[in-house]
Amino acid sequence: MKLHLKIWRQKNGEEAGKFVSYELPDVDEGSSFLEMLDIMNEQLVGKGEQPVAFDHDCREGICGMCSLVINGEAHGPQRATTACQLHMRHFKDGDTITIEPWRAKAFPVVKDLIVDRTAFDKVIQAGGFVTARTGSAQDANATPIPKPIADKAMDAAACIGCGACVAACPNGSAMLFTSAKAGHLNLLPQGQAEKDQRVMKMVSAMDDAGFGNCTNYGECQAVCPKEITLDFIAKMNRDYAVARVRNFFNHAC
């Protein structure tokens, strides 16, 4: 198929970027979206032009590295699909496709379609863990976990940290990402000891990193490639409120 691409080009974080048009004469519809970009880059190299920089690694939808806004949607038009798992058969001959990086205050552009997502790491570093020193664990079956709870924790833990939720949110909020991790760990018995501290520290780190507030647009849930739901945001809000109250009374007495 023949495609017309409009791609965001930006030399680095300091310089302004702009859209540049490219024509692709022959794309196999069995190719993935990123393979289509590979082909385009090979053509650019052939002509002596700078190829388009974009993040990608596993190309099987699990590492969370790919981060493209395709025709205005984070990860493109397919539901529950990362850009690397999107295939060209979902496009038509003659289509114009616009490709941009994630756009959010907390994710500055590094080059072309690559952004800096270390703000996510900061949120995890603040409290997205269970403290369990190596070698200190009890037998794995010592604490049974009801299957529905383990399953629900797994639903949240499926987050790949790609940042599509932030890119899609008009406020650039990281509530879905943060609540997925807080929800995963706060649901499990292993996560109880640090539950209050976890949610307070993660929320505070999220605010410090420059992410916006949540005003219930729900765009995050719509674009999440792992279909993480707004329920986890509601749970985090509850956990946060309880933690603040408990914290207040602990300090009061």
């Binding site: 863990f129 369990a132 070698g135 664990a137 794995a140 079956n141 383990a150 797994m154 995963h184 499990l188």
Partner: peptide
């Protein structure tokens, strides 16, 4: 055997049976 203990302690949500065991 220690690895499974360690990872469960860290909150890895391994698949479980209805009785709650791994």
């Amino acid at each position: 055997v220690n690895i499974i203990d360690q990872m469960v302690a860290q909150g890895v949500p391994f698949a479980r049976e209805y009785g709650g065991l791994l």
